[in-house]
Design a protein around this nucleic acid. Structure first.
Lengths: 135, 135
DNA sequence: AGAAATTTGTCCGTATGTATC
DNA sequence: AGATACATACGGACAAATTTC
């Protein structure tokens, strides 16, 4: 087989389809995606291409992979109705301060989203950002 | 050739050496890294491995790649522990314990990923999950 | 406790497509 | 148009972590 990637590359197309399943709940938060070998069969793609697609999902924050275990779906807070979100401002501890290169105690914004399945908490996701300075 | 990667994987070792050159000024900010084919010759590694090393540099915010052009070194790297993605087990504090409905101090899994633009930390995302045990 | 099966991680070699010089 | 450089894709092999039996 040649390698015609007119338009979108295959790994992007595959990543989009997997993203669709995560967002519409076919793969609920915390559930495992099919194994890489299973995906190679389903999409008729090499394992490298499948891994590239999964890497794209990870970068988008949609999945988390563990060695020997599998790849979990993460919640997509904006589109999940059963997700609770909260925003608050916190003081940077030493670790976050080092990452953001600010002083300890500087103000950071934390967005927290809690996803549940059948009222049981599945995941808690916290995203930290610098507080936006004025326009 | 087999694949003996005792200790650090090769792409990490290569990434570390390239990082060293960027941080000590051997490759000044804005300069191009050697081409991938040149690096394959220098490190006697396949192009895939070289690309993996460069991808690690990108994730760490140390380099920027442009399609038919090359990979540039970015400015202001040092002192950051390259913890782009990390997994660790933590003890639940009161807030997380309440959310997950477990005792304070119970073990949770935390995945952290850091995204950067131009070597500046943009967001820090932490996903908390119960540690899986049974089927 | 230990062996086997499963699953992701790393690495190689090759070929072709696409963007830039 | 040609040369150079990165991007995508395939297939195979072995390593390492986890789960299952």
């Amino acid at each position: 087989m040649p390698t015609p990637h007119y338009g979108l590359p295959r790994y992007r197309v595959i990543a989009d389809q997997l993203r669709e399943r995560i967002e519409n709940g076919a793969i609920p938060p915390g559930a495992l995606l099919p194994a890489e070998t299973a995906l190679t069969a389903e999409f008729r793609a090499s394992r490298g291409t499948i891994r590239q697609a999964i890497a794209a999902l990870r970068e988008a924050g949609l999945a988390t992979t563990e060695h020997g275990r599998g790849t979990y779906a993460n919640a997509y807070p904006d589109r999940f109705s059963d997700a609770q979100t909260r925003r608050r401002e916190i003081a940077a501890d030493a670790e976050l301060a080092a990452l953001f290169d600010v002083e300890v105690g500087a103000t950071l914004v934390e967005h927290q989203s809690v996803t549940r399945t059948e009222s049981k908490v599945e995941t808690v996701m916290r995203v930290y950002r610098l507080r936006q300075t004025g326009p």
